[in-house]
Every structure is written in C-alpha cells, then in structure tokens.
Design a protein around this nucleic acid. Structure first.
Length: 224
DNA sequence: GCGACAG
DNA sequence: ATCTTGTCGC
C-alpha cells in the first residue's frame, strides 16, 4: 500500500533555490504569533537533525516526552536525501522537510515543540522553529546553542538567569543560562508562544545538562 | 570591500 | 552538521 504523503510538505514547495527562499520567508513571517496559544502541556517534543554519508543523507529525529515528568513517550526517525545546502539564515530549507515528515509520522503530536535552532531570532524573524511552527500550528520554541543575530549584555552566571537578545532595537529572544557557569542557550519564540513562557518551558525541560531533555534525546537519536 | 554567519 | 584523540578541570 502507498505510504500516506506528508500533508504539509505536499502543500508547501521545498524544491526551491537559495534565490527564492528569502521571499518565502518574508511571506510567511507575518503568520508568526508571539503569544501563548495553548493550554495544558501534557507532551513536549524535541526535534533535531543529523547527517550521514558526509551530509548526503539527512536524518531527522523527533521525540515526544510526557510533561512535566519528561519520560520518553514516543519517537520517530526519518532518513532522506539532502536537497539543500547549509546557508546561514536558510537552515529550515535544509532541515525542515525531514523534520515535518517525522512529525507527520507521530501518533501523538506534542503540545509544545523545542526546535534545534532559532525562532524569530533570525535576520528576517523566521528561523526554523518559526517555520515549523507556522506550517504545523504547533507551539514552537527556538533553542539554539549559538547566536545567529542580535546583541546582549553579560549574562549572570547562575542557572535560570537570562538577558534579552536584541536586534535593530527590538527584543528577539533571550540568552539563557541553563546551568550555572555553563555556556548559555539562545531562546526565541518560534510560534504560538511568548518569550517569557518559552524561557520557563525550556528551564522546565532541563535536568542536569546544558541542553533540555527534549533536544538531548532528539540529538541522540539523530546521531545514531 | 571586510567580517559575521543557527546546523 | 561532520571528520577525530587526547586533555584540562571540577
């Protein structure tokens, strides 16, 4: 029997060139919602991507954990040919297709999704977390390990402390210390969630490591 | 023209 | 991201 095709990827073209993708981002950026649009969170998801065969194969992993226990409930791994190069600012066109396919295969969609990468802390305010959030409607948070754009003051060393990340005079995210004395994480709204809530949920998903359990587990599966 | 630059 | 060993520090 034919495999059911991903409803989202079939409705949105991914076979585009680096020249026309910025227009797509500028067209979709206006759909991003910066406030909480969800109720009780029972399942939190984590999404990450890894590569095989010298980046020829994209390996996307999505995990669903119970919240607030953070126990693994379900996970999905999708492998497919890589079709887009890595270009700063265009990450979603390289990684989102496989991630959407993995999300589409889930039995239980998460109430909140933590994505590896930026949300609106992006040149055109449309990083991968926003892209996935807008296309799926799932509240999403951008959790990046390093900065793409923006400036910020020094961050206090204590766990939980955070400072605003600004760009062109506007707050686009927060630089969060998830563990005392450890390199901070760059948090930003992806879609359907406010920044303060995003920071709180990320901290609620952190146990004893710098990265939240969602991203840690997704990363573990995306690597092999 | 010279740097910066998610994963 | 991926290719890779040892090493510094709590």
């Amino acid at each position: 029997m034919p495999v059911k095709k991903n409803a989202i990827s079939s409705a949105h073209p991914w076979n585009v060139s680096p020249a026309e993708v910025r227009d797509i981002q500028n067209r979709l950026r206006h759909r991003v919602v910066l406030s909480d649009r969800f109720e009780t969170v029972r399942y939190v998801g984590g999404a990450d991507v890894g590569f095989e065969d010298k980046t020829r194969i994209t390996r996307a992993a999505v995990v669903v954990l119970t919240f607030p226990e953070l126990a693994l409930h379900e996970y999905r791994i999708i492998r497919q040919a890589t079709t887009f190069p890595y270009v700063p600012g265009l990450l979603s066109f390289r990684e989102a297709p496989a991630l959407l396919a993995a999300l589409d295969a889930l039995e239980q969609l998460p109430d909140l999704l933590l994505c590896d990468g930026q949300g609106i802390a992006h040149p055109r305010r449309f990083g991968i977390a926003s892209h996935i959030g807008v296309l799926t409607g799932i509240p999403a948070i951008g959790v990046a390990k390093t900065r793409l754009v923006g400036e910020h003051p020094p961050i206090p060393l204590e766990k939980g402390r955070h400072v605003p990340l600004t760009h062109h005079g506007e707050t686009i995210g927060a630089v969060l210390r998830t563990r005392t004395g450890v390199k901070p994480l760059f948090i930003s709204t992806g879609h359907n969630i406010g920044l303060e809530s995003a920071v709180a949920y990320v901290m609620a998903c952190v146990t004893k490591y710098r990265l939240p359990e969602t991203t840690r587990q997704a990363h573990r599966l995306a690597s092999g």
